[in-house]
Structures are given as C-alpha cells and as structure tokens.
C-alpha cells in the first residue's frame, strides 16, 4: 500500500510522549489528504492540538463542544454540499467519552441521517483528558479514578460498550474497527471510508501511556497485544457484511496484555480468568 509522505498534523502539539491518539490522527490524515475538513470533539486531541494562538492542524478544523461532533460534522457536511464543495471529505474525531457516552445521541443522529462523513472514535478506554475516569468503553476489570480498585472493588465491573455494533445497527454502509498498531489495516479502512458514499464509522483502539500505566515506548506493543490476545478485534462491516480483517496466527493468553498495564495489575486470578473466558467466547464465535 502506498502511504502518502505528507504530514497534515504538525509537531509541537502538547500530547504526552508516546501518545497513541496523535499516531492515529497522523495516519488517518495521510489517507484523507489535504482536501479534508476535520471536526474534533472536546478531549485530549482538541486540547493538545489547538493551544491558541497555535494549531497543529494543516487542514481546516473546527471544535464546538464535547457531545456534538456528530451534529457539527452534519452541519459542516451540508454547508459544503450547499456550496457545491462535494469533493471535500468531512472527518470527525472524538474520543471514547465523546462517542460512547456524552456524544452518542449526536453520533446516532448523524449516522441515521446518512451524511457523507467519516467518524473516527479514538478509543483509549477512559476519560483521559480529565485524568482517567471510566467511560462506557472502559473494559471489565480496569482500575480508573472513578472505578478504583480497593477492598470492595476490582475496578470497572461492566464490559466495554460495543459501539461499532451499535453503529452497524444504524445500517450505515461502512463500519470498521482498527488499531494504531496495525497501520496498514487502519489506513486501508480509512481509504474505504473515504470512498464510500454516506456515513462511515471507524473505531480505533489506541493505547494511552498515562491512563493505562505503561512505559511510553510500549504504545504500539500494547495495541498489538490487545489484538494478538483477542482483547480487541479487527473487522469491517461493508454494507452489512461482516469480515474479520486480521487473525492472529496464534492467540496469546490475555494475561500478557493485562500484566503489561498498571490498570489491571490489581486483578485477582479469578477476574483474569473471567476476562479470558469472555475473550474465548467471542473469539470462538468468530473463529479467531
């Protein structure tokens, strides 16, 4: 796959060293190209890339609030259409909080109305911008500042909300999951999302050094472990047709993923086993 050289997100941004979100956005923008308008929900990405009077964005960019990236992108898309600028790609970036929780209504509306836009959720599995509070996308067993582990708690006690499937239920033409650790898979999906007529949704798994508790050099490694253990699946749903896009040659035990992160360090064997069983069940169904 030809990967465009041009960087459309400038350095100098205020992301933590080893930030997975900026890797994801860089790679996405390479495929989307300069003729693109970006919408950001409030979150890490918005704060780190646009500290007035600077911006890291080399393409037009707009931020309005936390919970409305879907609606703002809808307005942008229709305004461009009204001006005959149909060739411009509209992409919205929102974190898992802005997508799975506070922004779900707005996203649902945008998907259901059939706007020609791409929505990329960069999922780091908690509210990282405000200091690691749980979100609907926080996985079972993770310790966050609002689901701390303790005598009476093993951390988050609900599994991750399945947003890609909720998006698929909207009947949109393209839904995919991706990981920053599989750049070609991700970028190919961005390319498909760009080409599709109508709404496209990509759920990008993206490790967070600060929130997950691992060394900044391990961001890609952690993303890889998530996929290689079956904790995160790479698939796409094209016009309703589900397809796994990557299968690990040999699925690793979930433990290697859990033990590499501080947020799971407290887990007792019983909980880890539960997580393994949960992963096994899903993977068996999907033959991974």
């Amino acid at each position: 796959m030809e990967i465009p050289e041009k960087e459309l997100l400038a350095p100098g941004h205020r992301a933590c060293a080893g930030c997975g979100a900026t890797i994801g956005v860089r790679l996405a923008l390479k495929m989307l190209g300069e003729n693109t308008v970006a919408v950001s929900a409030t979150g890490c990405l918005e704060v780190i890339t646009t500290p007035y009077p600077e911006t890291s964005w080399k393409i037009p960019w707009i931020h309005v609030a936390f919970e409305n990236a879907g609606a703002v992108a809808s307005g942008v898309e229709r305004a461009l259409k009204a001006q005959g600028k149909d060739d411009v790609t509209v992409v919205a970036f929102a974190g898992d909080g802005g997508t799975a929780d506070i922004g779900l209504q707005s996203l649902s509306g945008a998907m259901e109305r059939g706007h020609n836009l791409i929505y990329i959720c960069y999922d780091n599995e908690a509210y990282m911008n405000t200091g690691v509070q749980r979100s609907g996308a926080t996985p079972y067993g993770a310790s966050t500042t609002t689901t701390p582990h303790g005598e009476e708690s093993f951390g988050e006690n609900k599994p991750k909300k399945n947003i890609p499937m909720i998006m698929a239920a909207h009947g949109v033409p393209y839904v995919a999951t991706a990981s920053i650790s599989y750049p070609e898979d991700f970028m190919m999906k961005v390319q498909k999302a760009k080409e599709v007529e109508g709404p496209a949704y990509i759920h990008l798994h993206q490790p967070c050094t600060t929130g997950w508790g691992y060394d900044s050099s391990k961001t890609i490694e952690l993303g890889r472990l998530a996929v290689e253990t079956g904790s995160w699946l790479l698939y796409e749903i094209v016009e309703g047709e589900f397809k796994i896009t990557y299968r690990p040659l040999e699925r690793k035990p979930v433990n290697v993923y859990l033990e590499a992160q501080k947020r799971f360090k407290h887990l007792a064997d019983a909980e880890k086993e539960k997580i393994q069983n949960y992963v096994d069940e899903i993977c068996a169904e999907l033959k991974i």
Partner: peptide
C-alpha cells in the same frame, strides 16, 4: 479565537 496559521504548533519545540 480563530487560528489562521496552519501547523503553527511547530513554534513549540517539544
């Protein structure tokens, strides 16, 4: 608070 200088975060040497 519009920023008209695309990619201007390069001023901030991290």
């Amino acid at each position: 608070a519009v920023v008209r200088d695309p990619g201007s975060s390069i001023k901030n040497k991290t």
